[in-house]
Amino acid sequence: MTAPLLQVDDLHVRFPISGGGLFGTGRRMLHAVNGISFDLAKGECLSIVGESGCGKSTTALSILGLQEPTEGTIRYRGQPLAGPGAPGRMQRAKAVQMVFQDPYASLNPRQCVRTSLAAPLKLHGITAASEIEGRIEAMLKNVGLTPEQARRYPHEFSGGQRQRIGIARALILEPEIVVLDEPVSALDVSIRAQIINLLLDLQEKLGLSYIMISHDLSVVEHMSDRVLVMFFGEVVEEGGWRQIFETPTHPYTRRLIAAIPDPDAALNPVAAAFAPDATLPDGRRFVSDGSAAPDVFKPPVPSALVEIAPGHRVRLASTA
């Protein structure tokens, strides 16, 4: 087996919150991400799912270098990507790029598509006009746009086309890892299908690795190879997509899956019933059933990810 492309080890992110009090005496730490570890292999699509506020975006920002981790290491091809000894922004930009949820908010309305796509190339030392033109043209074709459209401005495109531009801009520097933050949740059903197909085609063609952040589990099931389920800063369950969707074990994962508005489940409620409760290893219990929020200002209850099947791990605490 080849070495993982990206290794995240025991990542913690804490934010200081001033809790009032005279002279800021009530200063508390908000535990946003509590000890997340995962590997990302080349060509893999890893999904991080969870509700708003569970820390999935903070994790992604740390990988992009936009949020300094409080503790833990992030390694890209064995080299640290954050903390001391980390490469600068320019090197990082060639390794990891991001596609945002709302492409209109993330494109400069005063720059035509060509300018938006040329800027990163110029910054990274590609000055020959012919090469810039060639790469922009090839990239636009890759994402299903025509080279002539490069002279238009963001407002002249539809939502789906704008997301294609967002993807083109993320891929123009040929990164190996692309972070997709809710890439299709702002789009209509039919456009959503086109963008999902495009992302899967590009992954195969360019050998990309995806980290997808989403709360839409039907899209996650369709696209991912492995899934991490996050609940208040911790991974509560991780496994291959079949393990997560066919034998979900943690109560929170089950709740998330049961909440998906799926036409088949709505019309045939019997088919949607889950397998009986999993038998847990002796002396272990679930930390929470995922229905009540823990206190985010305290360190979490000690617990560990326990392997219940090869590659399928669930967070359990000891009953003692």
Partner: peptide, 17 residues
């Protein structure tokens, strides 16, 4: 057909949307 549905993906691969 454009809707990714739960359980539509099998071990053999996914149906293209």
């Amino acid at each position: 057909g454009a809707l990714p549905r739960l359980g539509s993906r099998s071990a053999h691969g996914r149906q293209r949307l």
